[in-house]
Design a protein around this nucleic acid. Structure first.
Lengths: 307, 307
DNA sequence: ATGAAAGCGCTAACAG
DNA sequence: CTGTTAGCGCTTTCAT
């Protein structure tokens, strides 16, 4: 071997001469593309960009390139996208779009593709994931409302085929019993999607039957915004008539009218951890499967007040 | 050749047998990766996700995969990212992060890499781009304020090394002369970045010297939000004391306090057009260079009122 | 028309 | 330790 210094000089000269090694060719040979796929359910949901960005930077710092894709919340597209990524031979996958039962995820596990779920997880518990503590989050929101004096609290949940939707709903039901709160079936409705319109629809169903609740706990900020809309449509004021809480503390919710009380999740850490764990799995496929659960923190703003 | 029907059947059987063709190997041979790079200045700016999404879908429908990357507004990273994409042999590039003088863009043009700029463009005018009509936008905002009765109108501009920042600023200066408005130098300050803090800083400089304007025209929604913050810090109310307008009509600005009067740009069309033009250039590299300029539309909301 | 062979740019294995 | 070669999976060219 020549000296390290010389070697570097040669490489540099080669670079300057216009040589760039072709990672495609290298990948063809080594079966390592140094590429990681990131799969999102919805790029336009502001929760994700910060997660993606921190993941991307972490990956990049280690010489990996991120390939992003957006499923638009559609199952078929999720499959297509991941198929495509597999055929492009990504070294691993970060999936933020997982459903509780997700055949696409199962396939990846079976094929041994390094995989980390972020934000949402699947029911089977032997897959790497970095998520937030949904149970804790709901408890924080609920006790905040109880502290303010609310007793009749409605719940607008997320889709039950996602881990977040399911866990938050279960937690709410369990806690409301523990605290001896009103527990009519109609006081907890799950939206079909994490979107504003779905949230609005859910709340409108509730307002049609029970108008006597003083607060609504929404499983997600977008749903909470839908609640804002529906309340406004009924001439109800938030928080004067009804308090509202969200989940995620996505960017800009502090500027809404009223500023949303919600649960903050450490988005940056989520992204960084997901990337790090994935790289670990890529380098040591047999290392134990890590699951990280980060604590949310309640951020009290103007959308909650005493009844 | 066998019949079309039979051929399809065979291909299908092969698929089912688990065969997937390897696009890397194909790309190595044909020098076509069917991959397109999309370069953003800032993923967390809500203007971009809708553009990206529509571009991605258009690309996808034609068998191309998008590789996203976020420069975090840093020049060095822009270079690194595009270098990386080049070495990964993307077939073309959609760049939303262009500066007015952008050596990275120049390099791509020189190397003959198919390229489309979106949202922002460069000063040299022989590169494909799909942007909005900045001059028209500023005129719409300004005449709206004039119609409301404002005469002393301040301007918070964007970075002058971007085409949008530069054009909007020039338009404002030109129009304010044409309309015979107050034209102190201090009444137009350009922020160093399209961020809330930069907007806030810019407005604070203006408030320190001239407190007598009744409206501020901001070159971008994020800057306008920064103005909201600074006004609030000074105990000034919007729109009662001072009206504010933005630019981009990014998602959620209609829910802010107050809802922002701003210019809507057709984001979806922007993304679709960029993708289509790029694909055209990829398939016919010698086709004439297209430049599309879309019309913005003013959306009047609660942040503007008579002085 | 069909089938064999060369080669894209790289790395890993193999002789020298 | 250095230099040579085979081959990753595909497409394209060239004989047959």
């Amino acid at each position: 071997m020549v000296s390290d210094h010389l070697a570097r000089k040669i490489l540099q000269a080669a670079e300057e001469l216009g040589y760039r090694r072709n990672p495609l060719a290298a990948g063809l040979r080594t079966r390592q593309t140094h590429t990681v796929g990131i799969v999102l359910p919805d790029l336009t949901n502001p929760v994700f960009p910060p997660i993606v960005r921190s993941a991307e930077h972490t990956l990049d710092a280690q010489g990996y390139t991120a390939v992003l894709a957006d499923t638009g919340n559609r199952r078929r597209r999720e499959r297509t996208i991941i198929d495509n990524m597999k055929s492009r031979r990504v070294d691993g996958l970060i999936i933020a779009a997982a459903r509780r039962k997700d055949p696409v995820v199962d396939d990846c596990v079976e094929l041994g593709i390094p995989l980390v779920l972020v934000n949402r997880t699947v029911d089977k518990h032997h897959v790497a994931a970095v998520i937030n503590d949904d149970e804790l989050g709901i408890e924080l929101a609920l006790t905040h409302l109880l502290d303010l004096g609310h007793r009749r609290i409605a719940y607008v949940g997320g889709p039950q085929n996602t881990s977040t939707g399911h866990r938050r709903y279960k937690s709410f039901i369990r806690l409301r019993q523990r605290f001896g709160l009103a527990s009519e079936r109609e006081l907890a409705v799950n939206a079909v999607d994490y979107t504003e319109t779905a949230g609005q629809t859910a709340l409108s169903r509730m307002l049609a039957s029970h108008r006597d609740f003083t607060a609504v706990l929404a499983a997600n900020d977008l749903l909470a915004l839908g609640c804002y809309d529906e309340l406004r449509a009924h001439g109800l004021r938030c928080p004067d008539d009804i308090s509202v809480t969200g989940y995620n503390d996505m960017p800009f919710v502090d500027r809404f009218d009223p500023p949303l009380t919600t649960l903050h999740i450490p988005r940056k850490v989520l992204g960084v951890q997901a990337a790090k764990i994935l790289l670990e799995r890529i380098r040591q496929p047999d290392a134990p499967i890590k699951q990280v659960r980060l604590e949310p923190r309640i951020v009290v703003r103007g959308s909650t007040a005493p009844p």
